[in-house]
Amino acid sequence: MSAPYSSLASREQRGTGRASRVALWTVVVALVVLGLKFVAYLMTGSVALYSDALESVVNVAAALAAVVALRVAALPADEGHPYGHTKAEYFSAVAEGVLIVLAALSIGREAIGALMLPRELDVPYAGLAVNLVAGVINAFWAAQLLRAGAELRSPALLADGRHLKTDVLTSVGVLLGVLAAKLTGLNWLDPALALVVAVNILWSGYGLVRESVSGLMDAAVDPQTEARIRQVMRQHGDGALEMHDLKTRHAGRLAFIEFHMVVPGDMTVQEAHTICDRLEDAIRTEMPGSNISIHVEPQEKAKHHGVLVL
């Protein structure tokens, strides 16, 4: 017994529609920040600020990829995709991770060249102030993305939010480093800091790709979420004998849950169906947007493990 995907489609499409609007605003914010950071670089000539600006190019590309992915994810289930298109969001996150890695390699090349041939820095404070404004905008929008991504269970928005959060920390480090280079006259600090930024960005990109590939590979929900599911099964499984073989997987903002439910051999189909409905409603209350499949079995199929109701 299962809840058809169509019963969830309307709610999920509304969530995806809101996520798409947030992603569109992310493109606007990314373009503004990109403009400010390149102005700061042109005003200062700092390699570190150049690396910070180059990462913003990645932000724009990633935001555009998220818009496309979310529009695909919003498509309703069809004959060829009966479980919907929500996994499209993971492709956006993977693409963002790859772009981050490419940006890190480009920054690293520029930084190594500047380390070999250091140049005199004449950094006006106005340029640093422009970069600081860009960082504040990024910090504000990163918080909005993380909040919306968690609320809408959107891998694409969460990936964007985490990347922007890393970008903010990078910008703070860059500003402090460039300021130190200006005050001390140690010009090698500028490219050295850019190299540190490249390594940090590379690690961030690796984390995004790893997490997104995990989603594409149908990874199970986290242990805490599985524990909550088992607790709900235990609390609302009155009438059943046991529930075993619990399996879960993610598909974008959806979670798919399936398990076997053992009932007394003389229980009617209607009685078993009532228990299934109660369990599905309780699990969906705990995990909105879940798609649940329950396989009902007679008493002789009991395995005496899993969630024991009686």
Results as ranks from 00 to 15, higher is better:
I100S: 12
I275N: 10
A3S: 15
F91A: 00
S10H: 11
Y5C: 11
D78Q: 05
A103N: 09
G45C: 09
V296N: 06
G84I: 06
D218R: 04
T166M: 13
L241G: 07
I137E: 02
E55L: 12
L128E: 06
L42S: 07
V136Y: 14
V133A: 03
S46E: 01
R210F: 06
V174M: 00
A3G: 15
I100R: 06
D218W: 01
N138M: 10
A61S: 15
L183G: 11
R249C: 05
A111I: 13
R278E: 02
V174T: 02
V27T: 07
M43P: 07
V58Y: 03
K165C: 13
L31I: 15
V221K: 00
I275S: 07
D238K: 07
A88E: 00
L157R: 02
A111K: 00
L49N: 03
L157S: 07
S154G: 08
G177A: 15
H260K: 12
R253T: 05
S2E: 06
R11S: 15
V197L: 10
A150W: 14
L31G: 01
A240C: 12
L36T: 02
F91G: 02
S212D: 09
G80F: 10
R119G: 00
S56C: 13
L279T: 08
V39E: 12
P223K: 02
V123D: 04
L216C: 04
Q299N: 13
N187H: 14
A74M: 06
A88V: 04
